[in-house]
C-alpha cells in the first residue's frame, strides 16, 4: 500500500496550476484534500505521473456566505463549512450533510470541491449542489466557465469537467423565507458512506401549501439524483402525511441501486424510501416552525 513514484507540483496560482495540468496532460491529477485520491494511489489503483497540488493556491482557500449564496473555494475544507456561523439556521440540510461526511480527520482535510469533482454517487456535496441548484466554476486553458449542477454529473465518478480543467469555486444559493430542510442518511456505522441518504428542502407559502420542494438522493444510482416525481407531487400541495408518503413512494421509478457487500438492491430501495420520508418530514416540520 505504497503509491508509485510521481512528480509533485505545487503551483501558487490558478493560472500556474492550469498551465502545469495542461503541460503534463492526462497523466497528471489535481489534488486538494486527497481523501479519495491518496487511498487509490496507495492501492495503486491510481498511478498519476504528476500531482498538481492546489493547497498552495491561496485564492482558492475561502468559505463564506455572500448574501444568499454559500461560496466555497476549491480548497475549502468540510470543517471550514461546519465552522461558518449561522449555517445550520440558514440551511440545516447543508450543515447536517457536512456533519455526516466521514470522521473529523476526513472533514479537516477533505474539500467540497474535491468531493464534487470526484462525483461519488454516495457523497454528500454533489447532492447538495443538485438540491440547491448550485453551480461550479472551472478554469482550463481556454479560460473560465461556469457549469450548472444539472449539467455537471454524468455517471459514476464522471463529471463534465475536462481533464485539463480545475474546479475553482462552488456556489450554492441558500433559499430564504419559510424554509425548512434536512439531510438524513443510513449507514451501518457512524461515518460510513451511506447505504442511502436523502436531502430535502421545503418552502411553505402563506396558505400552508408547498411553494417549493427539493428532494435529492444519494447511494441509489450512478449519480446523486433529484427526484422530479416527488417534487412535482409536493409543489402546490398541502404537505400532509399522506402527501409525503405519495411523494417519497414516487422515488421508486427514479432510483436504481446496485447490490454490493453492504446490501442488496432491494434493501437499498427500502432504506432510500425511509430516509426520503424522514428528510421530507423534517423539512416540512422545520418549514412550519420557520413560519411560526
Amino acid at each position: 500500500m505504497k503509491p508509485a513514484a510521481f512528480e509533485y507540483l505545487a503551483p501558487r496560482s490558478v493560472e500556474e496550476a492550469v498551465a502545469l495540468l495542461a503541460e503534463r496532460g492526462e497523466d497528471a491529477k489535481v489534488i486538494a484534500g486527497g481523501q479519495s485520491l491518496v487511498p487509490m494511489m496507495a492501492f495503486r489503483l491510481a498511478t498519476p505521473a504528476a500531482l498538481v497540488d492546489l493547497n498552495g493556491v491561496s485564492e482558492l482557500d475561502h468559505a463564506r456566505v455572500d448574501r444568499d449564496t454559500l461560496v466555497l473555494g476549491a480548497t475549502a475544507r468540510h470543517r471550514s463549512v461546519q465552522e461558518l456561523a449561522g449555517l445550520r439556521e440558514r440551511c440545516a440540510m447543508v450543515a447536517e450533510a457536512v456533519g455526516l461526511i466521514g470522521h473529523p480527520p476526513i472533514r479537516n482535510r477533505g474539500t467540497a470541491g474535491g468531493s464534487i469533482a470526484h462525483a461519488d454517487p454516495a457523497a454528500e456535496w454533489p447532492a447538495l449542489l443538485l438540491a440547491l441548484d448550485g453551480e461550479v466554476d472551472a478554469m482550463g486553458p481556454g479560460g473560465r466557465r461556469t457549469i450548472a449542477a444539472a449539467d455537471l454529473f454524468r455517471t459514476y465518478f464522471t463529471t463534465a469537467l475536462a481533464p485539463d480543467e480545475i474546479l475553482t469555486e462552488v456556489r450554492l444559493p441558500l433559499p430564504a423565507g419559510a424554509v425548512g430542510s434536512a439531510f438524513v442518511e443510513v449507514a451501518q456505522r457512524h461515518g460510513d458512506f451511506a447505504v442511502a441518504g436523502a436531502g430535502a428542502l421545503m418552502i411553505v407559502a402563506d396558505d400552508g401549501s408547498v411553494a417549493d420542494a427539493r428532494l435529492v438522493l444519494i447511494g441509489v444510482r450512478d449519480t446523486a439524483v433529484r427526484s422530479v416525481a416527488a417534487e412535482t407531487i409536493l409543489r402546490g400541495a398541502s404537505p400532509t402525511d399522506p402527501v409525503l408518503d405519495d411523494a417519497t413512494n414516487a422515488i421508486r421509478s427514479e432510483i436504481d441501486p446496485v447490490s454490493d457487500v453492504h446490501g442488496s438492491s432491494a434493501y437499498r430501495r427500502r432504506v432510500a424510501i425511509a430516509v426520503a420520508r424522514r428528510a421530507v418530514t423534517l423539512a416540512r416540520d422545520r418549514a412550519h416552525a420557520a413560519v411560526a
Partner: peptide, 16 residues
C-alpha cells in the same frame, strides 16, 4: 445479523 437480514427476518424485504 446485518440490517438487511433483520428486515428479511421481519418479512419486510424478500431475501436476496
Amino acid at each position: 445479523v446485518t440490517p438487511e437480514e433483520v428486515l428479511t427476518l421481519a418479512g419486510k424485504i424478500e431475501s436476496p
